[in-house]
Amino acid sequence: MKTLKLLLLLLYIPVAFSCNNDDDNNQPSNQEFTGTWKLINVSGGFGGVDHDFEEGIITWTFNSQNETIVVVNNNPADVYDGLGTGEYTYDFVPNDITTICAESFETQGPGDAETTSNFGCMTITGDNMTLSMAEADGFLLTFKKN
């Protein structure tokens, strides 16, 4: 009987310690956001913005191989719209603002500029993507995949 208990214990130990928690890193995979996305709405902020954009006025094209975004912004309106035209680098950084997601989506650029923008949590559902800093009274940007 002792041998059976010892055998079961020895089988249990590798199983117990081989588990990991993949849920800790909930950033979307590169395949999910690689490609061109059209900004269709910006909402939130202190002023309660809720602005729809005509599809194609503002596009973000993600290249996961070199971690860049090419933004084409033809917005004539005087409303917050994320990023201006240019090429930006991106990264996922530890999120110390909210507990909604472990990592925030951050951009830097364009070009030689050292301007960093933190867009908060990235969520992708099908052909829709959101970047949200709503928990910190920031903006929610909604995109549709091209």
Rank of each mutant, 00 (worst) to 15 (best):
T61Q: 12
G45V: 03
Q108K: 15
G109V: 01
E67S: 15
G86E: 08
A16C: 13
L10N: 11
N20Y: 11
D24S: 10
E55K: 12
N146I: 04
S117Y: 04
N128M: 07
V15Q: 12
N74T: 04
K145M: 04
N75D: 13
W37L: 01
N21I: 08
T36M: 01
E87N: 13
D22N: 11
L83T: 02
W37C: 00
L8H: 06
I69C: 05
T130D: 06
I69G: 05
E135N: 10
Q65P: 01
L11H: 03
E55L: 07
T115C: 11
N66K: 10
G56H: 04
Y12R: 07
G109R: 01
G82A: 10
G86M: 09
F105T: 01
F143N: 01
F139N: 05
P94R: 02
K2W: 08
T3H: 12
M1S: 15
N146A: 11
V79S: 13
D23K: 15
G35F: 00
T3Q: 15
G35W: 01
F143P: 00
G120K: 01
F143V: 02
D23H: 13
F143W: 02
F119C: 04
S64N: 06
L7A: 15
G109A: 05
N73M: 05
G44D: 09
D22T: 09
N73L: 07
A113R: 10
C19I: 09
L83K: 13
T107G: 03
C19T: 11
L7K: 15
G47H: 11
V71T: 02
L7D: 11
G82N: 10
D50R: 08
Y90G: 02
G86T: 05
Y12V: 09
I57N: 06
V70F: 02
T115I: 13
N74R: 03
K144A: 02
G35V: 01
L131C: 01
L141D: 06
N118E: 08
E55T: 10
T36A: 04
G138C: 07
V93I: 03
D137N: 14
A102W: 00
F92K: 05
S132P: 00
E114Y: 04
V93A: 15
S29M: 08
P76S: 14
L140G: 07
D81S: 15
N146T: 07
Y80C: 04
D23C: 11
G44A: 09
E114C: 05
A16Y: 14
T89I: 07
N118G: 04
F17L: 14
I58R: 00
D23L: 13
D24C: 06
N63M: 00
F139I: 01
Y80P: 14
T107N: 04
T123K: 10
T34F: 02
